[in-house]
């Protein structure tokens, strides 16, 4: 079953069309990466899923319920972590989580244990200071705690790792992977290594449209291969290959890159016929980075 579905969502700010036609589905218990450049409209899309922004067209359903602007009933299935989470700075983290539990209508008995459990999970247990004095990383971790509080069916994180150092990033990614057991995670990012590390499915947003979508494997297959590489035993053989295939690129003295897959057979034949020893011959895997560049037209 799909926990989240967007159908032909459109949004414009004045004359600027931010989202032209965005459609995708997120099945349950997946870690879904929502990738796009800065300013591509990722935050805008997320805010419309949450009913915080009005759509100019299309429809969004969360757990089968339509999302309506200003009415936040569908949000009871959702936990949300904004890119820069802001809390009531006059509260302590424990007070804030209890407040969140109360306004989301959790049973009173369940709130205190759940809050304690989550504060331990994000490493803020025993923090008696008020939120006023928190660092960016601490706020981000408290943000995850509040998002997971009412055991949401869908966890939406807006660039959760963008502003963090490598250790902080790893901590957040680990928490997201753990969260996948209990919920579905949609997170936006422009950091491709994060996506490759943890995502099951991805969607690329570019110029207001989803230009690429599917599981990590599908997305990579979908695109024509990036060619193949040949590493020679002896650098002196490189010239013979280059003479036969002038459009090949020499990466190092003994390392050649062929961009056209069709040439593989001819290259192998030449290697055999001319008795050229090689160390390895390998098909190049498209990286998300190269896909992203290709999609972004650069």
């Amino acid at each position: 079953m799909d926990i989240l579905e967007l159908k032909h969502v459109q949004k414009r700010f004045g004359s600027l069309s931010v989202l032209e036609d965005v459609s995708f589905r997120v099945p349950e218990h997946t870690l879904f990466g929502f990738v796009g450049q800065n300013g591509a409209g990722k935050t805008t899309t997320m805010k419309m899923i949450l009913g915080l922004l009005q759509m100019d067209g299309g429809a969004v359903t969360v757990n089968g319920e339509p999302v309506r602007y200003g009415q936040t009933a569908a949000n009871r299935f959702v936990g949300y972590l904004p890119d820069v989470p802001e809390f009531y700075s006059f509260m302590t983290p424990d007070e804030y989580l209890r407040f969140c539990g109360e306004i989301s209508g959790m049973p009173a008995r369940a709130i205190a244990p759940r809050a304690g459990e989550l504060l331990t999970l994000v490493g803020l247990a025993g923090e008696k200071r008020r939120i006023r004095g928190f660092s960016r990383g601490m706020k981000q971790r408290l943000g995850i705690a509040q998002a997971l509080l009412n055991r949401p069916r869908l966890l939406i994180c807006d660039e959760p790792t963008s502003a963090l150092d490598p250790i902080g990033r790893k901590e957040i990614l680990d928490i997201l992977v753990n969260a996948k057991e209990q919920t579905t995670v949609v997170f936006s990012t422009h950091i491709l290594s994060d996506v490759e590390r943890i995502c099951d499915e991805i969607a690329f947003l570019h110029h207001g449209k989803i230009v690429l979508q599917g599981t990590l494997e599908e997305v990579k297959q979908h695109h024509h291969s990036a060619g193949f590489e040949v590493e020679l035993e002896y650098p002196r053989d490189a010239q013979r290959l280059l003479a036969a295939f002038p459009d090949a690129k020499q990466l190092t003295r003994s390392h050649l890159l062929f961009t056209q897959d069709e040439q593989a057979e001819a290259v192998m034949r030449l290697l055999l016929d001319s008795h050229i020893p090689i160390r390895r011959m390998e098909k190049r895997e498209p990286t998300l980075e190269s896909l992203f560049m290709e999609v972004a037209g650069q």
């Binding site: 200003g70 936990g79 802001e86 306004i103 989301s104 009412n150």
Partner: peptide, 15 residues
């Protein structure tokens, strides 16, 4: 201005 209501609304509290 601070954006504190965003989280409150996403918890399902009615406006």
């Amino acid at each position: 201005q601070k954006g504190t209501l965003v989280l409150v609304l996403t918890k399902g509290l009615k406006r």
